[in-house]
Design a protein around this nucleic acid. Sequence first.
DNA 1: ACAAAAATGCAAATCGTTTGCAAGTCTCAT
DNA 2: ATGAGACTTGCAAACGATTTGCATTTTTGT
Lengths: 146, 146
Amino acid sequence: MAAMDIANHLRRHKKSLTRARTEIWRILTQSEKPLSPNEIHRRLNTPKANLATVYRNLRALQDVGLVREIDLREAFKRYEAILAGRHVHHIMCQVCGRIDKIRHCMIQDMANAIQKESGFTLEDHYLECFGICPSCQPHKTEAQGA
Amino acid sequence: MAAMDIANHLRRHKKSLTRARTEIWRILTQSEKPLSPNEIHRRLNTPKANLATVYRNLRALQDVGLVREIDLREAFKRYEAILAGRHVHHIMCQVCGRIDKIRHCMIQDMANAIQKESGFTLEDHYLECFGICPSCQPHKTEAQGA
DNA sequence: ACAAAAATGCAAATCGTTTGCAAGTCTCAT
DNA sequence: ATGAGACTTGCAAACGATTTGCATTTTTGT
């Protein structure tokens, strides 16, 4: 998903390419981890787009398939750019909060079993993990529940 | 996890066995799917415990390991009784909202790969799925995003 | 450049969830 | 059984993330 594609993506869905959207896209693609609406808002150049605009645009970018919502059981959602079609899972450190991507996903292997067990077709899923990152492992004593 | 265990569980954590907790536990164990705080509140016998009490007790029951929180990307969280130590995943129908349990979980098979890829220890995870349930499959056209 | 469509800023509204505090209930040792 | 202390509840207010109404501004396609 090259940066230039954003305009086409939006046009295809009758959505405009605005300064706010361009900036949000830049911020998301430059971030190494999913960001909350507030974090995104903080990183906007002045004059900052309104926080409500950030929310509206995050939804718009999701609608056109450029952005995905991540829920790490915090008080808010996080968002990340979909750079490749492939989906990604995450693992968050229960001690320091560091968030890494997990590119390994065996869900396909589970799909058959799940479909057989439940009778559902499997259209989407999310898998998020919690653990202790390498830097925090020496201190591992009791991790706060996740 | 027999019903009688609830008292011991609570006592072990210096928590009282109250009418509200007993009722919430009954409601959760009798439900075939995870319930929201509001749904639980609605099912309380009169005089109904306050909704804030429901929230507080759901947390208390989580603290002692009797209840688990489920996030199906709705506007609220759901809660279910932990009847066996084994964890459970869910699949929700994108058409009618039906929620089924998935007892099949291959996460253990993924654990090694994830730990190797990320360097994290894997302490917890959640996996929730979305699809189309058998009754809705004939009508399957375009499922609203999940 | 224009008219129509879409987006934005701002403030107010929503809504799930949490919290302060005074009053009520439960526990446990006596 | 009973009383003090610990824990819980009800109620209303507070919170925080997210959404929305509406008038104004920007973007789009022609």
